[in-house]
Amino acid sequence: MNAAAPALVVVSGMSGSGKSVALNTLEDLGYYCVDNLPAVLLPEFVRHVLAGAEAPGKVAVGIDVRSLGDLSDVPAVLSQVGALGVDPRLVFLDTRSDVLLRRYADTRRRHPLSHLGLVLADAIALERQALRPLRQIADVVLDTSDLNVHQLRRQVLTEFGLAGAGLSLLFESFAYRRGVPPEADFVFDARVLPNPHWDARLRPLSGRDAQVREFLDAQPEVAAYATQVQGLLDAWLPRLGADTRSYVTVAFGCTGGRHRSVYLAERLAAYFRAHGWPEVAVHHRELD
């Protein structure tokens, strides 16, 4: 692929499978995202992006049953995009029909094909048939049947945010009352630190808010804690990078997963980005 061309991810799949979550997560990872683009416009869209003076380095496009045009033309459209020097990656989100029926019942949202006068089960079956050409040529198929929103977001983070060369880092926050993330390589307990929850002004906020950061920045024990964790990771992450693994998850936990753990995950992520780590992502399990 041309070095000046953006990375292009085409997100498709069944309605209710989590495509919006996937696109929102890609946007958080720095992708320029466009949803519900008619497939026939994709080559022109890519030409426009490439022609821009400040072309984005990463682009994601949502194409699904809502998009105008014949979805069976998508393989030919992707070939046209390839001729422009871009190697598109098609990601298809799939979900079992029984799970989709339950999700629609829970959310009471209308299926995109409901305007045809079909009952929900028939609309899902027709959509699955229309999307079959895309699923068959997909580079990645994600089955989201047994994933909640947080699990899907994390899978997208590890699939697209941590795919660079060398060791990539994921800093994650969590609440101990909901369990320790089983995928964590390092786990640090932030419950020993001053808790912003007990300040009525800070309670409704999170560790991403300036007021909470200012409160925790002013605590000497928080600074000492962060510095010691940084020192440990500085010493041992390069050794892990020499191993065969591609990414490491560093998890911070506190009581509610909103203040101290979020603050530390953001602070450590910023520290390692500033110190030359090219692939650093953040996931807040209780917030995202």
Rank of each mutant, 00 (worst) to 15 (best):
L71N: 07
A3V: 14
V192E: 10
V262E: 05
P75I: 09
Y225N: 01
L233Q: 04
L41G: 03
L37K: 07
L216I: 12
L50W: 00
G117N: 06
R109T: 13
R273Q: 13
A121R: 11
Q136S: 10
S15M: 09
L116N: 08
S206H: 15
D106E: 15
F215S: 06
L23G: 01
L120V: 06
A281I: 00
S20D: 09
V156D: 00
Y176F: 15
G257H: 05
G30D: 10
R260S: 03
G57M: 01
S168A: 14
H115K: 13
F160P: 00
D122K: 08
R103A: 13
M14I: 02
T249R: 10
P38F: 03
G82C: 07
L240N: 02
H150S: 14
S246G: 11
G256F: 03
N148L: 03
H284M: 05
R66W: 07
R132L: 12
V280G: 03
H111Q: 09
P194M: 03
L147S: 04
V49K: 07
A210W: 11
A226F: 12
R260I: 02
V192R: 09
Y176M: 05
L233M: 05
L232N: 04
L152N: 03
G82A: 10
S15G: 08
R154N: 13
Y176W: 15
L78Q: 13
E27K: 12
T244I: 10
V99R: 10
E54L: 14
Q80F: 07
V49G: 05
Y32G: 02
R203F: 12
A200H: 12
L84H: 09
A190K: 01
D234P: 06
F188W: 13
G253A: 06
L93C: 12
L29F: 00
G164K: 09
A200V: 13
E279Q: 14
D98P: 00
R153C: 06
V140S: 08
H275T: 08
A55P: 08
G257T: 07
G161F: 00
L162M: 12
V77W: 01
D209G: 08
A53I: 07
L118W: 09
D146M: 02
D70A: 11
E27N: 11
R239G: 09
V46S: 05
D64M: 11
L116S: 08
L232V: 11
V99H: 04
L268A: 12
A39N: 10
G16A: 07
